[in-house]
Design a protein around this nucleic acid. Structure first.
Lengths: 206, 206
DNA sequence: GAGACTATTGGACGAAAGGGCAATGGAGCT
DNA sequence: AGCTCCATTGCCCTTTCGTCCAATAGTCTC
């Protein structure tokens, strides 16, 4: 899994500002791409690649806040930094409550912008790691048969094989077999690891 | 552990507004208390009691943001809702980044205020549950001797008693004893539970 | 030094876990 | 029916776990 360099998506209807931002970001070593509107960005779905968004708030058509709300519903949303010319407290609070990394006002200082974008990229990287981890976990559990899953639940509940066999109405030998199978599927080498997996699974968004 | 009803701490230098807010909150069934300044609030440290803060931003002396920053450093900070008469995007973003529940502007609508305060109280309740849980966990682990802790680490790493005895340079018999002791101290009945505890401990802020 | 206390160890026993081998029985396919 | 495939089970064996009683060595207190 080769990690692509991150890309910053700049959505602003002011073309001169947009190109200036792209040039500034490019000069700083960032890969960046511009979009004249929310629709432009949604029409060109970027490949699943590390990055973040730099959004204007007020634009003809859907606003930056609308775009943020839309992206939040999808599976792998990129972190958002807002950059607006209008001092709108309501919008800023709404954006931050919706998870924006920062909400900057034009004219923006170079350092403030870069600092915010870097935080957004860091957050994206962290989210990617966490999502990949969650995905692996989910896939591993999805590979379990219903019976294996039932045995798993009772193991982590502290039951011993005999009790599990009893409550499930199957032979203890079968429990042992399914126990070995589920541990193999989950890549666990001990009951303690099963407990750790159970705890992590429980705390996954679902 | 009897849960006291939550209290809303209103910090605002405008006395007429403050009393109006207290009356409004009282009429809505909230327990509320007023403070004329940040210093007043800090001088009267409220007992550790469920609640939240309703803060003005601009006040003579330390601002609401200063108070928020100070409270964030203590162990059990109450959630903060800001209520300000000045439309200051910079302040609102700073407040939200620092974890404020909401940032409202005067004049505020009744429902918006109550909704924000309710969210703050809900967050406080959730934080209290999480903190109590974390505290219990930490206390349980603090009761372990260094040797028991070492054995615990190796158990959750998947080592069996014989290996643990070998790496620690002690007899297997001793490992068994310490294993039983640490499980008793942690209230665990199975290796799987030890794994769960290890996972939870790892994700505690520390 | 005597006594108390803790940590550690040895030996031993029953229960449980892990796994190999073979048999059973049902579902599905030819 | 004949066949394979797979889940289930019984039997047996070894290893590990959990726990009993007893004993040793070291530390701390009086």
């Amino acid at each position: 899994m080769t990690t692509l360099p991150p890309m910053i998506h700049v959505v602003d209807d002011d073309e001169s500002l947009r190109t200036a931002l792209l040039r500034l970001l490019g000069a700083a070593g960032f890969e960046a791409r511009g979009y004249a509107s929310t629709g432009d960005f949604l029409l060109q779905p970027p490949p699943d690649r590390p990055g973040c968004l730099l959004l204007d708030v007020r634009m003809p058509g859907p606003s930056g806040l609308d775009l943020q709300a839309t992206l939040r519903c999808q599976s792998n949303p990129l972190p958002v930094v807002f950059l607006t010319g209008y001092a709108d407290v309501t919008a800023s609070v709404r954006a931050m409550k919706a998870g924006a990394v920062d909400f900057l006002t034009k004219p923006v200082e170079r350092e403030a912008l870069f600092e915010a974008l870097q935080r957004a990229l860091d957050r994206d990287a962290a989210q990617r790691v966490a999502r990949a981890e969650a995905e692996r976990l989910r896939a591993a559990f999805a590979a379990l048969t219903p019976r294996e899953r039932a045995v798993f639940d009772r193991i982590v509940a502290g039951q011993i094989n005999k009790q599990i066999a009893d409550t499930l109405g199957i032979a203890e030998r079968t429990v042992k077999l399914q126990r070995a199978q589920l541990m193999a599927k989950l890549g666990a080498n001990s009951a303690a690891e099963l407990g750790r997996l159970a705890e992590r699974l429980q705390h996954l968004p679902d």
